[in-house]
Design a protein around this nucleic acid. Structure first.
Length: 556
RNA sequence: UGGGGCGUGGCCAAGCGGCAAGGCGCGGGACUUUGGAUCCCGUAUUCGGAGGUUCGAAUCCUCCCGCCCCAACCA
């Protein structure tokens, strides 16, 4: 998309205005600040696209900064996963990998500065008491009895907090702002709490840790961030963000808030995602049903499709719930252009071509990608015994059904036109084999002017490879699982269907883990990067093809 | 009942006083050796509501209604 056709958004307008007035001297520095306490999900992809996208667009840079201020919830596993996911998405922070923990000493010195200027004090209230004193949404809070301690006493106590003289939870450092503020964030927010925990980066160097509000703006300032984009729930925090910066008199970035992404049929809160993993509803953070980048990648989503999606949904401050169909559309559009086509039968039904010589094999040339001539062609073997999709045979045929049924003609893609001559059923009446005859004159599938509406895919029984195919559906049965009493009640029991008897064409033999392919007439699949092996092919369905027949059939 | 935001078609979203972009979805058609792709056509006399200002309002003013967020020593 070019500059000219890119739709405007309010963030670009704010920056354009800053550039016009010279507020930041034309500089644009942004940052993506994940807390390493979980995996990145599609919602983060939106934030990443905005943070890195805006920086690139305005010739600036974007930092990656881990907001690691809470050692009890963070870990190196998450740090590594987050960096891998951002790189995979296609973004680069260059030399600018930072951590809030890099600034712990500076933050501490600044805190002492606020204590000395009478803008912060040590409070002995317990967590519960602090909550009581804070008041409610409609009633003002009351000052802590420790609020007016002398500067020297505060300084002494704060230093001893750092020195480890006090137990967890016994004291905090608080900013002295306004206990009656209608904005609860300004009612003497906690700046430091005591946590005798080992931090994944600073080890045991600290036992007091800064709160988000006290670390974020200051970190932005240290790094020279000009535009600090975050989600709407931080809007109420902006006055505090500004207050700290002004109290310190340091470089003052602009915080800008936008609406976070909500996607239908899934949950995006870290708490819910963690529960799905820990309670075993999914196999892990990278389960293909998860909205995490790791899950989407394994499912078969491409970075390009996700970036395109983030670009297309736009940026506003209005609450939103984007339909999953939109994300799926972006994937199909990308894979339609790039994924090689293959023939694969998911639920095999034996088809015998009665008049085709036993033991004869011929090869037909198949197009790898009609959207990309450069992708070339391949040979697919044909013989007397084939497998076709169970869905491609019906007896009797419903109205407008163009596939195989007794007496009907259909084209076997790239091969011949065949006519169904009969079926074999088991004792229970289920079809076990379909028989047909082929027309030798239709070699290659040429209909010679005849009308053959249906074309179905097939695979030669003797040449086919066995494969496991995993069909995924949404994790939840409703568009807004967060509206349910608990999302567990709307979990989709059929979110995964494993097909172990699939038959795929031999060209798929060496399919590389993580590679994408379109199974003709079925959907886009991805070779499972974790479970697929040379002798045991495993394909994940990323998204199905648009299915017009399913639509016709469901309408009756 | 306090504070901060937001309300444009089923979903996302342009629009910034001159007479409702676009995408997704949906419906119809063309084409088709993927019922895929592609291509056409259709889909808001109206912008949460009511007043007002103006020659003219989704855009300005007033009031009302609805929705979201905030009372962790989480981020």
């Amino acid at each position: 998309m070019t500059e000219a056709t890119k739709p405007s958004n309010f963030i670009r307008e704010i920056i354009l205005e800053h550039n016009r007035t010279g507020r930041f001297g034309g500089k644009v520095v942004t940052r993506f600040p994940p807390e390493p306490n979980g995996y990145l999900h599609i919602g983060h992809a939106k934030a990443i696209s905005i943070d890195f996208g805006i920086a690139t667009e305005f010739g600036g840079r974007c930092h990656l900064r881990f907001d690691d201020t809470n050692p009890t919830k963070e870990s190196q596993e998450y740090v590594d996963a987050i960096m891998g996911d951002i790189r995979w998405l296609g973004f680069d922070w260059g030399e600018h990998l930072h951590h809030a923990s890099d600034y712990f000493e500076q933050l501490y010195q600044w805190a002492e500065q606020l204590v000395r200027s009478g803008k912060a004090y040590v409070d002995d209230l317990s967590g519960e008491e602090i909550r009581e004193y804070r008041g409610t949404l409609t009633e003002p809070g009351r000052p802590s009895p420790y609020r007016d301690r002398a500067v020297e006493e505060n300084l002494d106590l704060f230093r001893r907090m750092r020195a480890g003289e006090f137990d967890d939870g016994t004291r905090t450092l608080r900013a002295k702002i306004d206990m009656a503020s209608p904005n609860i964030n300004l009612r003497d927010p906690v700046m430091y709490r005591i946590r005798k925990a080992t931090h994944q980066r600073t080890g045991d160097a600290w036992c007091i840790y800064p709160m988000y509000d006290w670390a974020h703006g200051e970190s932005d300032s240290i790094e020279g961030v000009t535009h600090s984009m975050c989600s709407l729930e931080y809007e109420d925090h902006r006055p505090l963000y500004d207050w700290y910066l002004d109290a310190l008199g340091i470089f003052h970035p602009q915080q800008i808030e936008f609406a976070r992404l909500n996607l239908s049929h899934t949950v995006l809160s870290k708490r819910s995602l963690l529960e799905l993993v820990e309670q075993g509803h999914v196999t892990g953070w990278d389960d293909p049903r998860m909205p995490t980048l790791a899950g989407l990648r394994r499912r078969g989503y491409t970075a390009e499709a996700i970036r395109d999606f983030c670009e297309r949904i736009g940026v506003t401050k209005a609450a939103n719930l984007v339909e999953l169909a939109y994300l799926e559309h972006c994937l199909r559009e990308d894979l339609n252009r790039r994924a090689p086509r293959r023939l694969a039968v998911l639920r095999p039904l034996r088809l015998v071509v009665e008049n085709y010589p036993e033991g004869q094999v011929e090869e037909f040339e198949a197009i790898n990608n009609p959207e990309d001539p450069a992708a070339g062609t391949r040979k697919v073997p044909f013989s007397r015994a084939l497998y076709i999709e169970q869905d491609d045979f019906r007896d009797p045929a419903p109205p407008k059904y163009f596939r195989l049924s007794p007496g009907a003609e259909v084209r076997l893609r790239y091969a011949y036109i065949v006519k169904c001559t009969g079926v074999t059923r088991d004792a229970a009446g289920a079809v076990t084999e379909v028989r047909c005859t082929y027309d030798p004159d239709s070699r290659g599938g040429d209909s010679r002017g005849r009308k053959v509406k249906g074309t179905i895919h097939w695979v030669s029984a003797a040449h086919a490879l066995d494969a496991e195919v995993r069909l995924y559906d949404t994790l939840f049965t409703v568009p807004k699982p967060d509206d349910a009493e608990h999302w567990a009640s709307v979990l989709n029991p059929h979110s995964l269907e494993t097909l172990r008897g699939a038959k795929v064409e031999r060209a798929l033999a060496g399919a590389a883990p993580g590679s994408h392919v379109q199974f003709e007439r079925t959907g886009y699949f991805c070779v499972d990067a974790r479970d697929s092996a040379p002798g045991h092919l495993v394909f994940n369905r990323a998204v199905g093809l648009r299915d017009t027949w399913a639509k016709i059939e469901s309408k009756g």
